[in-house]
Computed example of a mutant assay.
Amino acid sequence: MQYRNGQRLPLEGLTARLSVNPRARRLSIRIDARAGEAVLIAPSERKLAEVVAFARTKTGWMRERLADRPQGTPIEPGALIDLFGQPTRLTATGGAGAARLTEDADGPLIASGGEGEAYARRVENLFKRVARETLQTRTDFHLRTLGQRPVKMSIADPKSRWGSCSPHNRSIRYSWRVVMAPPTVIDYLAAHEVAHLVHADHSPAYWAVVQRLIGDHRPHRKWLRDNGPALHAVGR
Protein backbone atom coordinates (compact mmCIF):
# COMPACT_ATOMS: atom_id res chain seq x y z
CA MET A 1 0.00 0.00 0.00
CA GLN A 2 1.23 3.51 -0.85
CA TYR A 3 1.08 5.87 2.12
CA ARG A 4 1.19 9.67 1.91
CA ASN A 5 1.83 12.58 4.23
CA GLY A 6 -1.29 13.70 6.10
CA GLN A 7 -3.20 10.49 5.42
CA ARG A 8 -5.45 9.15 8.17
CA LEU A 9 -6.03 5.44 8.52
CA PRO A 10 -7.85 3.15 10.97
CA LEU A 11 -5.48 1.11 13.10
CA GLU A 12 -7.15 -1.57 15.21
CA GLY A 13 -9.88 0.63 16.62
CA LEU A 14 -8.04 3.95 16.65
CA THR A 15 -7.19 6.66 14.14
CA ALA A 16 -3.62 7.30 13.07
CA ARG A 17 -2.39 10.29 11.06
CA LEU A 18 0.77 10.00 8.97
CA SER A 19 3.23 12.88 9.20
CA VAL A 20 6.48 13.42 7.30
CA ASN A 21 9.08 15.49 9.16
CA PRO A 22 12.40 15.74 7.28
CA ARG A 23 14.11 16.75 10.53
CA ALA A 24 13.05 13.57 12.29
CA ARG A 25 15.99 11.29 13.04
CA ARG A 26 13.91 8.19 13.61
CA LEU A 27 10.43 6.74 13.39
CA SER A 28 8.21 7.87 16.24
CA ILE A 29 4.63 8.02 17.53
CA ARG A 30 3.05 11.07 19.16
CA ILE A 31 -0.37 11.23 20.78
CA ASP A 32 -2.43 14.25 19.73
CA ALA A 33 -4.79 14.50 22.69
CA ARG A 34 -6.64 17.48 21.19
CA ALA A 35 -7.50 15.66 17.97
CA GLY A 36 -7.92 12.27 19.67
CA GLU A 37 -5.53 10.46 17.34
CA ALA A 38 -2.03 9.04 17.11
CA VAL A 39 0.48 10.78 14.86
CA LEU A 40 2.96 8.49 13.12
CA ILE A 41 6.12 10.42 12.22
CA ALA A 42 8.69 9.45 9.62
CA PRO A 43 11.58 11.39 8.02
CA SER A 44 10.30 10.74 4.47
CA GLU A 45 7.28 9.37 2.63
CA ARG A 46 9.15 6.20 1.68
CA LYS A 47 9.54 5.50 5.42
CA LEU A 48 5.80 5.81 6.15
CA ALA A 49 5.20 2.10 5.58
CA GLU A 50 7.83 1.35 8.22
CA VAL A 51 6.28 3.66 10.79
CA VAL A 52 2.86 2.09 10.15
CA ALA A 53 4.32 -1.37 10.72
CA PHE A 54 5.99 -0.09 13.89
CA ALA A 55 2.71 1.44 15.09
CA ARG A 56 0.90 -1.88 14.68
CA THR A 57 3.12 -3.24 17.45
CA LYS A 58 2.21 -0.32 19.72
CA THR A 59 -1.59 -0.23 19.44
CA GLY A 60 -2.09 -1.17 23.11
CA TRP A 61 0.14 1.68 24.25
CA MET A 62 -1.61 4.13 21.91
CA ARG A 63 -5.06 3.12 23.21
CA GLU A 64 -3.93 3.65 26.79
CA ARG A 65 -2.53 7.09 26.03
CA LEU A 66 -5.66 8.14 24.14
CA ALA A 67 -7.88 6.87 26.96
CA ASP A 68 -5.93 9.04 29.42
CA ARG A 69 -6.57 12.27 27.49
CA PRO A 70 -8.85 14.84 29.14
CA GLN A 71 -12.55 14.34 28.57
CA GLY A 72 -14.50 17.30 27.27
CA THR A 73 -16.14 19.52 29.89
CA PRO A 74 -19.63 20.38 28.64
CA ILE A 75 -20.65 24.04 28.62
CA GLU A 76 -23.87 23.69 30.58
CA PRO A 77 -25.45 24.97 33.81
CA GLY A 78 -23.69 23.55 36.86
CA ALA A 79 -20.32 23.11 35.14
CA LEU A 80 -17.08 24.64 36.43
CA ILE A 81 -14.87 26.24 33.80
CA ASP A 82 -11.74 28.25 34.53
CA LEU A 83 -11.55 31.92 33.62
CA PHE A 84 -8.16 33.56 34.18
CA GLY A 85 -7.19 30.36 35.98
CA GLN A 86 -10.07 30.61 38.48
CA PRO A 87 -12.91 28.03 38.59
CA THR A 88 -16.05 29.82 37.43
CA ARG A 89 -19.55 28.38 37.87
CA LEU A 90 -22.04 28.33 35.03
CA THR A 91 -25.65 29.10 35.93
CA ALA A 92 -28.88 29.45 33.96
CA THR A 93 -31.05 32.56 34.17
CA GLY A 94 -33.94 31.40 32.02
CA GLY A 95 -35.07 33.38 29.03
CA ALA A 96 -32.74 34.24 26.18
CA GLY A 97 -30.39 36.78 27.74
CA ALA A 98 -26.72 36.97 26.83
CA ALA A 99 -24.13 35.47 29.18
CA ARG A 100 -22.66 37.84 31.74
CA LEU A 101 -19.83 37.53 34.22
CA THR A 102 -20.73 38.26 37.82
CA GLU A 103 -19.86 37.12 41.34
CA ASP A 104 -21.55 35.98 44.53
CA ALA A 105 -20.42 34.84 47.98
CA ASP A 106 -19.07 31.59 46.50
CA GLY A 107 -16.91 33.29 43.86
CA PRO A 108 -17.12 34.16 40.16
CA LEU A 109 -19.96 32.86 38.03
CA ILE A 110 -21.33 33.19 34.53
CA ALA A 111 -25.10 33.57 34.25
CA SER A 112 -26.72 33.01 30.87
CA GLY A 113 -30.02 32.43 29.18
CA GLY A 114 -30.71 29.87 26.50
CA GLU A 115 -30.90 26.08 26.58
CA GLY A 116 -28.66 23.35 25.21
CA GLU A 117 -26.54 24.53 22.29
CA ALA A 118 -27.93 28.07 22.58
CA TYR A 119 -26.74 28.24 26.19
CA ALA A 120 -23.27 26.94 25.28
CA ARG A 121 -23.02 29.40 22.40
CA ARG A 122 -23.84 32.37 24.65
CA VAL A 123 -21.23 31.32 27.21
CA GLU A 124 -18.61 30.75 24.52
CA ASN A 125 -19.36 34.18 23.06
CA LEU A 126 -18.70 35.70 26.49
CA PHE A 127 -15.34 33.93 26.68
CA LYS A 128 -14.50 35.24 23.21
CA ARG A 129 -15.37 38.82 24.22
CA VAL A 130 -13.24 38.58 27.34
CA ALA A 131 -10.41 37.04 25.33
CA ARG A 132 -10.55 39.82 22.73
CA GLU A 133 -10.44 42.58 25.36
CA THR A 134 -7.67 40.94 27.38
CA LEU A 135 -5.46 39.94 24.47
CA GLN A 136 -5.90 43.29 22.74
CA THR A 137 -4.68 45.03 25.90
CA ARG A 138 -1.63 42.79 26.32
CA THR A 139 -0.83 42.83 22.61
CA ASP A 140 -0.88 46.63 22.53
CA PHE A 141 1.33 46.75 25.63
CA HIS A 142 4.01 44.53 24.07
CA LEU A 143 3.79 46.37 20.75
CA ARG A 144 4.55 49.63 22.52
CA THR A 145 7.46 48.05 24.38
CA LEU A 146 9.04 46.99 21.08
CA GLY A 147 8.14 50.19 19.26
CA GLN A 148 5.97 48.25 16.82
CA ARG A 149 3.01 49.61 14.88
CA PRO A 150 -0.52 48.30 15.63
CA VAL A 151 -1.61 44.97 14.20
CA LYS A 152 -4.90 43.48 13.13
CA MET A 153 -5.98 41.05 15.86
CA SER A 154 -8.61 38.32 15.64
CA ILE A 155 -10.01 35.62 17.92
CA ALA A 156 -10.66 32.10 16.62
CA ASP A 157 -10.93 28.51 17.83
CA PRO A 158 -8.15 26.48 16.17
CA LYS A 159 -7.93 22.83 17.14
CA SER A 160 -4.30 22.85 18.19
CA ARG A 161 -2.57 26.23 18.00
CA TRP A 162 -2.79 28.94 20.64
CA GLY A 163 -1.86 31.75 18.31
CA SER A 164 -0.31 32.69 15.01
CA CYS A 165 1.39 35.77 13.64
CA SER A 166 1.71 36.90 10.01
CA PRO A 167 4.42 39.58 9.97
CA HIS A 168 3.92 40.33 6.26
CA ASN A 169 0.36 41.59 6.78
CA ARG A 170 0.77 42.48 10.46
CA SER A 171 -1.97 40.25 11.80
CA ILE A 172 -2.16 38.11 14.91
CA ARG A 173 -4.76 35.46 15.64
CA TYR A 174 -5.38 33.96 19.08
CA SER A 175 -7.38 31.02 20.40
CA TRP A 176 -10.10 32.29 22.73
CA ARG A 177 -9.46 29.27 24.96
CA VAL A 178 -6.27 30.74 26.39
CA VAL A 179 -8.44 33.08 28.48
CA MET A 180 -9.09 30.07 30.70
CA ALA A 181 -5.39 30.07 31.64
CA PRO A 182 -3.77 32.18 34.40
CA PRO A 183 -3.07 35.82 33.45
CA THR A 184 0.70 35.24 33.26
CA VAL A 185 0.16 32.53 30.64
CA ILE A 186 -2.17 34.77 28.63
CA ASP A 187 0.47 37.50 28.74
CA TYR A 188 3.12 35.04 27.60
CA LEU A 189 1.04 34.13 24.56
CA ALA A 190 0.64 37.79 23.60
CA ALA A 191 4.39 38.35 23.99
CA HIS A 192 5.10 35.18 21.99
CA GLU A 193 3.09 36.35 19.00
CA VAL A 194 4.22 39.99 19.12
CA ALA A 195 7.86 38.84 19.20
CA HIS A 196 7.29 37.15 15.84
CA LEU A 197 6.97 40.61 14.30
CA VAL A 198 10.69 40.96 15.05
CA HIS A 199 11.78 37.39 14.29
CA ALA A 200 9.49 35.07 12.33
CA ASP A 201 11.30 31.93 13.53
CA HIS A 202 12.00 30.39 16.95
CA SER A 203 15.70 31.18 16.94
CA PRO A 204 17.68 32.19 20.05
CA ALA A 205 17.30 35.81 18.90
CA TYR A 206 13.52 35.35 18.89
CA TRP A 207 13.43 33.89 22.40
CA ALA A 208 15.63 36.77 23.56
CA VAL A 209 12.84 39.15 22.49
CA VAL A 210 10.27 37.12 24.44
CA GLN A 211 12.60 37.17 27.44
CA ARG A 212 12.85 40.95 27.17
CA LEU A 213 9.06 41.24 27.21
CA ILE A 214 8.11 38.89 30.06
CA GLY A 215 11.25 37.43 31.61
CA ASP A 216 11.52 33.64 31.97
CA HIS A 217 9.00 32.19 29.52
CA ARG A 218 9.66 28.53 30.26
CA PRO A 219 7.09 28.06 33.08
CA HIS A 220 4.32 29.48 30.88
CA ARG A 221 5.25 27.27 27.93
CA LYS A 222 5.22 24.26 30.26
CA TRP A 223 1.82 25.25 31.65
CA LEU A 224 0.33 25.24 28.16
CA ARG A 225 1.94 21.88 27.34
CA ASP A 226 0.61 20.32 30.54
CA ASN A 227 -2.84 21.91 30.64
CA GLY A 228 -3.55 22.77 27.02
CA PRO A 229 -5.38 19.54 26.14
CA ALA A 230 -7.89 20.11 28.94
CA LEU A 231 -8.60 23.64 27.71
CA HIS A 232 -9.08 22.42 24.16
CA ALA A 233 -11.49 19.75 25.42
CA VAL A 234 -13.93 22.25 26.98
CA GLY A 235 -17.21 22.16 25.10
CA ARG A 236 -16.08 19.33 22.81
Rank of each mutant, 00 (worst) to 15 (best):
K128H: 10
Q148D: 08
F127Y: 15
W162S: 10
R132D: 10
G163F: 05
M180R: 03
H192D: 00
P182D: 12
K159A: 12
S160F: 06
H168W: 03
H168A: 12
N169P: 05
I186L: 02
A191E: 00
V185M: 04
A191W: 00
M153P: 01
I172M: 03
L146I: 09
E124H: 13
Y188T: 01
C165R: 00
D140S: 09
Q136E: 09
Q148I: 00
P167G: 09
H168E: 04
S171R: 15
L135H: 12
S175Y: 08
G147V: 03
P182N: 07
V185Y: 07
V179G: 03
E124L: 15
L189F: 02
V185P: 02
S171G: 12
S175T: 13
W176P: 01
A156W: 06
D187N: 03
R173H: 04
V151N: 03
I155H: 11
T139C: 09
K128Y: 05
Q136G: 08
S160C: 04
V130K: 12
A156E: 03
H168F: 07
G163N: 04
A191M: 00
Q148M: 08
P167V: 10
S166M: 10
E133A: 13
S166R: 14
K152Y: 06
K159Q: 14
V151E: 01
F127W: 13
A131Y: 09
R144C: 03
T184A: 15
L146C: 13
A156D: 06
I186H: 06
E133L: 03
E133Q: 15
P183N: 11
V151D: 01
P182H: 05
R177P: 00
E133C: 02
I155T: 08
P150L: 02
R161L: 09
H192K: 00
L126T: 14
W162V: 02
L189Q: 01
F141S: 07
I172F: 02
C165F: 05
